[in-house]
Design a protein around this nucleic acid. Structure first.
Ligand SMILES: [Zn+2]
Ligand SMILES: [Zn+2]
Ligand SMILES: [Zn+2]
Ligand SMILES: [Zn+2]
Lengths: 154, 154
DNA sequence: ATCCCTCTTGTTATAGTATAACGTCCGCGC
DNA sequence: GCGCGGACGTTATACTATAACAAGAGGGAT
């Protein structure tokens, strides 16, 4: 997988993700409206986590509505359908690096540049949950730290 | 470990945690002031995650200050020194179940009653981080779902 | 064509979470 | 006594998120 912290052809990165979103929407009867599509593109421009109000500012500058629900609704649509993820520790949003594939996402989040690498790992806590009769519905796995670039720039 | 979702002697639970906090503060030159101690007690009363403003309301009712920084400072003190943890997905706070012990905490969080069980697991993502040159400083591991009691009450 | 229904986008207003900045008090070392 | 740092209190403000309502677009039924 091309990773956020490695050099890669980012144009391919973007177009593959948009393509996957289009296909998934077509297949599931969802509509990837201009607002939703543009919101995804904004997230895809970088591998960094963006706050809802950052996204909103971009959308407003491009002629979409200027009020918070505009951004939150688009972001929630993307998150619900797996085209983006919410980084809980930052209250921020990032495009999914594996759109289409079912996965329990986990992230490496740089505290300096906010770039995010998405990893595929086994759901932790499953045995503990089993032992206690706890039914896991969703997992949040986020490692915060410094990415290679930001370590170097120390 | 006595778990939040199991029957246990909760009085012991509370007094052991307070004792551990007192000892740790004494040993590290920290001051467990009445405000900080009471804040910890409030968190300890249940194994549930409480919002900062819930805690603040309790503190105010007991004669402490009524403004947000009062609660946030006490909570931040407890979190910084490992006597409490922040549940990122809820923007809420819970008393630590292993005060004193060094640990990368992970949690089972009930979405219905907000009770939290703290587990000890290995840091996930370590191999991935290593491979990418990412320096992990903190991990957030939270499984959300339904606890045994809330499953039963379905 | 008209009606109805649902979905999307837009708005206003408000709720919920968190911190910056500053003043006072108190205990301690000098 | 004086200076200092830490804890606690305040005011004010910033940041994050949602409830509730209005307007338009599209589609299917009559
Ligand atoms: Zn890329
Ligand atoms: Zn970085
Ligand atoms: Zn207990
Ligand atoms: Zn529960």
């Amino acid at each position: 997988m091309p990773q956020a912290f490695e050099r890669h052809d980012h144009g391919t990165c973007i177009s593959a993700a948009l393509r996957a979103a289009e296909d998934a929407c077509a297949g599931r009867g969802l509509s990837l409206t201009p607002l939703r599509r543009r919101t995804l593109e904004i997230l895809l421009e970088s591998h960094a986590a963006l706050g809802a109000y950052d996204v909103l500012a971009r959308l407003e500058a491009e002629g979409f509505g200027s009020k918070p629900p505009v951004a939150y609704r688009a972001l929630n649509f993307l998150v619900e359908h797996g085209f983006a993820h919410r980084i809980e520790a930052l209250s921020a949003y990032v495009a999914c690096a594996r759109p289409g594939a079912e996965h329990a996402p986990s992230f490496l989040v740089c505290r300096s540049c906010r770039r995010v690498a998405e990893e595929a790992i086994a759901v932790p806590l499953a045995p503990e949950a089993e032992a206690e009769g706890f039914a896991i519905e969703r997992t949040v796995v986020e490692a915060q730290g410094l990415c290679p670039a930001c370590r170097g720039a120390s």
